[in-house]
Amino acid sequence: MTKKDVAMEEETPDQVVARASADVLRVVLADDHARMRGRIREALESGGCTVSAEAATAQEAVELAEEHRPDVVLLDIHMPGNGIWAAREIAGRLPGTPVVMLTQSAEEDDLFDSLRAGAAGYLLKDMDPRELPDALRGVLAGDGAMSPRMLTRVMDEFRGPTKRRFGRRSPAAARLSPREWEIMHLLSAGRSTDEVARELFVSPTTVRVHVSAVLKKLRVKDRESALRLLRGE
């Protein structure tokens, strides 16, 4: 280990921010699609960042993060080895190096699993790539980096608005996942299966699968019976 590596391990968060502000922001980029990595690299370099290394698998991301000690690691989720696993490993091995997920997945399970793994941000690939450099600098300054749609999911999880709008909380109903509550609330508001799918950016089949799971949990035969139970009717 070099003297520089030792010094970096001993840096405080304020020193990390100061160094990143003074120097070009160094990023390890992990995504299994080479063309996507190229587009992300171009956006980062146009915004004053430098990509220290690129990885195509979760294992490579962990190894390259340890080797290069970047300011930020930018991870895809659905790549060989699982980006959430990589986030957990990097957060444990390099606690001073923030990890930000950059993914196509708007699924709540991926969002909350990433945050539990230690990710400091969760960005969707449909964002304007020119905003990436500032988002990563914000993370180093102590801000969160999250696409607005996903921030709404986090706020809903803690506020629990869909759960409170139904009148009764039976032991069976309490087992519904946040996504199941969200779908049942939208259905109770008169949305069709296709409308719910469009609003949540999932397929109609996914909505039906979640509804089937709700029926099993509530031990009812149809959607209307489930909604009446959740409303306390």
Rank of each mutant, 00 (worst) to 15 (best):
E182T: 11
A34S: 14
D134S: 15
F201I: 02
R208T: 09
T193R: 07
L29H: 10
T50K: 12
G81T: 07
R137K: 15
E89R: 13
E63S: 13
G167L: 12
T50Q: 14
L136D: 00
R223G: 00
A135T: 01
T206G: 00
E107M: 10
V72Y: 07
E11L: 15
K125S: 06
H210E: 12
V6F: 12
R179H: 01
A117C: 02
L64A: 13
V27P: 12
D23W: 06
R37K: 14
E107L: 11
P148Q: 11
A145P: 01
L140W: 00
R93E: 09
F112H: 02
H185C: 05
M101C: 05
E11N: 06
E10V: 04
R37N: 10
A189G: 09
K3V: 09
L115I: 15
L230K: 02
M184C: 10
K3G: 06
A22S: 15
M155V: 14
G167A: 14
P178D: 10
A65I: 03
A189H: 05
L151M: 13
Q59H: 09
G96P: 03
H33E: 13
A56D: 07
V16N: 03
G138T: 06
A20E: 00
R219E: 15
V17Q: 11
W181D: 03
